[in-house]
Design a binder for these strands. Structure first.
Lengths: 153, 153
DNA sequence: CCTGAAAACAGACCCCC
DNA sequence: GGGGGTCTGTTTTCAGG
């Protein structure tokens, strides 16, 4: 079901990632084409789901979200039912910005954005009261060195 | 230097995060206001840096970036010069999507997006050849359970 | 600080190459 | 599949309440 992506498509995607606000004409100029083909390709890639949500990146600190934790989770439960409950909990919690199931001895990693350490503790207490977890390690970010949504394409 | 944000501003930010492509009229209707005030507030928040880059989220798998690693790094070096070199290396590498300096016994965490395990190894070899690193643990993501850029505001 | 209108602009879709 | 023009709607600006 994968649509064929050529070099021009990739250039368009790069331009869009860098600034989704710019006009078709600007993108067309940058990628060396013109309005209509660029527009057609964007439309096609949107329909194929390659291009997803259009959004703005906000300054977390300016909005009072000053703490970021990476949470490493080990569990002894591996049943479908437990996993479903855990997943639903993560989805329901807006402070969980990212969650991955891992290979290896750590089962899950979460990235959690909260106002402060106290707010993290509220989240942590809620999490362990809702699902059984064997072991949790929280890594506190002191400084965000790099952050990008731009995929290396 | 922080601009005062009120309830209406927050609603506007939520709407923009959810869909930056929608028209001013739509946003205005959702937040219970009208075009001009919404526009003025957006402009003010853009100038204040609260609203940053406007972008689109792409499907990494569809673009052949099928592997995601979280890299835990310990170092014995804590000099300014080493840190600067390390930072520059991370900035220069597009596969590094996120990098944080941590509190605790692990010094840094990276999130790295690559095509496959082989591509990760290329990155890893390049990294350890450029800067001295004491210990590296790579966590391989099997499944992205959740991913959002929407801050919990 | 909001409302409403007016001007500049960009997106969506046509036909022709 | 690309290039140019046109219509429609949206962004941006501005006068007035």
């Amino acid at each position: 079901m994968s649509v064929q992506i050529d070099a021009l498509d990739r250039k368009i995607l790069q331009a869009l990632q860098a600034d989704a606000g710019q006009s078709l004409d600007e993108i067309a100029k940058k990628v060396g084409s013109s309005k209509t083909p660029v527009w057609t390709r964007i439309k096609k890639m949107r329909e194929a789901g390659i291009i997803g949500q259009q959004t703005v990146l906000l300054d977390a600190e300016a909005l009072g979200l000053e703490a970021c934790f990476f949470v490493l989770i080990r569990t002894s439960e591996h049943e479908a039912e437990w996993q479903q409950k855990f997943l639903a909990t993560l989805q329901a919690r807006p402070e969980v910005m990212e969650a991955h199931r891992l290979a290896g001895d750590i089962d899950y990693i979460l990235k959690v954005r909260v106002a402060n350490a106290r707010a993290y503790d509220v989240f942590y207490q809620a999490l362990i009261s809702e699902v059984r977890i064997y072991n949790v390690t929280a890594l506190l970010s002191m400084e965000q060195i790099k952050s990008t949504t731009m995929l290396p394409i």
